[in-house]
Design a protein around this nucleic acid. Structure first.
Lengths: 106, 106
DNA sequence: CTCGTAGTACGGTAGCCATCGAACTTCGAT
DNA sequence: ATCGAAGTTCGATGGCTACCGTACTACGAG
């Protein structure tokens, strides 16, 4: 009944983003790869569009972790959901961090 | 028997440093604080000089983690050991990362 | 040599978290 | 209204790791 917008939609505003949480989110290989894929041409990806070797439920878990850390944003779009990198917010808080991470050879 | 220099002294050379490992090392609050303390005036700290709320053995564990990730270097000095940030190597591999992390308000 | 200090090694424990499958929800299409 | 596709939620599990105390090693001072 009038259900709240689902915890899934919650994400911190810029001032709530903490470096410890961001680093923890980026520290997982799968999530790091997801961030790399989001960084390509600054686009938005649906959940199903990520190319990572995990199950659908695990993917949801990683997206939630990234979103709650403030690394990505998400908005529902029909039956799917679009995700994007919060590059502006991250650059403002931790200038150079994202670029440094993405500069790594892999 | 000419014991080897102890695993504790081993650390990766620049080309062996991997971003995943570095991020994992930085993702722990205690280790992040240690890195912050090392970053102050680019100095060297003995193991005992870190101001963190963990036991001596745990401190050793964190120093090993940071060293094996390539975040810090260490050299024995008498009965103590000096630790320093490998800022040059990190900046070369991941330009901006360290500055971004250290720029975070805390 | 003896003693104290600095740090490491070891074994054990508790808590976290990445992972999965299955069940559920939501939305668009037919 | 039904169906299917896209995500989410839930519960369980295994592995990793931060943490500690104790025992040990290495070095310098006296």
């Amino acid at each position: 009944m009038s259900a709240e917008p689902a915890a899934a939609y919650r994400m911190p505003n810029q001032s709530e983003i903490r470096i410890e949480t961001v680093l923890q989110a980026l520290a997982d290989p799968v999530r790091l790869e997801m961030v790399r894929q989001l960084a390509k041409d600054d686009g938005e990806l649906t959940c199903g569009a990520f190319d990572v070797p995990v199950s659908k439920s695990t993917l949801t878990h990683h997206l939630r972790t990234l979103r709650e850390a403030g690394v990505i944003g998400g908005r529902p779009q029909g039956t799917t959901r679009l995700n994007w990198l919060r590059r502006k917010d991250l650059d403002a808080l931790f200038p150079g961090l994202l670029d440094g991470v993405l500069a790594a050879r892999h």
